[in-house]
Amino acid sequence: MSRTLELWLKNIDDNAEAVKEIMVSHSAGSVEAAAKQFNYWRGLNLQGIELFGYGNGEEWMTSQVLFKKK
């Protein structure tokens, strides 16, 4: 899984301008929103590379938590 995410990240980086154009078209023309989405996707891939690459891919754990105010 880690290697797959590394390839996805490489594709995103190698085609950054095309990816940003697609994201602008899906963000109602907002360049700022597209830039955020671009960075979110890069971060998601980087996170996955680290999570699934730990211990040669033999150990990993991830969770999703929703916090709310008391």
Rank of each mutant, 00 (worst) to 15 (best):
Q47E: 15
V31K: 15
L44P: 03
Q47M: 14
R42E: 00
G43H: 04
V31S: 15
Q37F: 00
N45M: 10
W60V: 01
K36D: 13
S63M: 13
E32F: 12
Y40L: 13
G43P: 14
L46P: 09
F52Y: 15
L51T: 07
F38P: 03
R42V: 08
Y40G: 01
L46F: 04
M61C: 07
I49T: 03
N56P: 06
R42S: 02
L44C: 09
S25W: 11
G48R: 03
A35W: 00
G57P: 07
E59N: 13
G55K: 15
G57C: 10
L51A: 02
H26M: 03
S63R: 15
G53V: 03
K36G: 11
S30V: 10
N45K: 00
W60N: 11
H26T: 10
S30Q: 13
E58H: 13
G43A: 10
G53Y: 03
R42H: 02
E50C: 05
G43L: 14
E58D: 12
G29Q: 08
G48Y: 00
H26N: 13
E50N: 05
E32Q: 14
F67C: 09
A34W: 05
E50A: 09
S63D: 07
N45G: 02
A33H: 08
F52G: 02
F52H: 06
Y40R: 06
F67A: 10
Y54R: 11
S25G: 05
A28C: 06
G29T: 11
M23P: 06
E59P: 02
V65A: 01
F52V: 00
E58N: 11
H26V: 04
R42N: 04
V65I: 14
R42C: 02
M23L: 13
N45P: 00
A34G: 06
V24Q: 14
A28K: 03
N39I: 07
A34Q: 02
L44A: 07
E32T: 12
G53H: 06
G53T: 04
M61G: 12
E32S: 03
V24N: 12
S25E: 11
M61N: 13
M61L: 08
S63W: 01
S27I: 02
L51H: 02
G55F: 03
Y40N: 07
E32L: 09
F38I: 00
M23T: 00
A35N: 02
I49H: 01
G53M: 01
W41S: 12
K36R: 15
F67L: 15
A28L: 09
I49C: 07
K36F: 15
L51G: 01
G57N: 09
E58P: 00
Q64T: 00
E32G: 01
L46C: 06
S27K: 03
S25Y: 10
W60G: 03
L46N: 12
N56T: 09
G57W: 13
G57K: 05
V31E: 15
V24G: 05
F67E: 10
F52T: 08
N45W: 04
F67G: 08
S27L: 07
N39E: 15
G57L: 09
E58C: 10
E32I: 06
V65T: 04
L44F: 14
Q64G: 05
Q37T: 10
Q47G: 04
A35R: 07
E50S: 14
Q64L: 08
S63T: 14
G57H: 05
R42T: 01
G53P: 02
Q37E: 12
G43E: 09
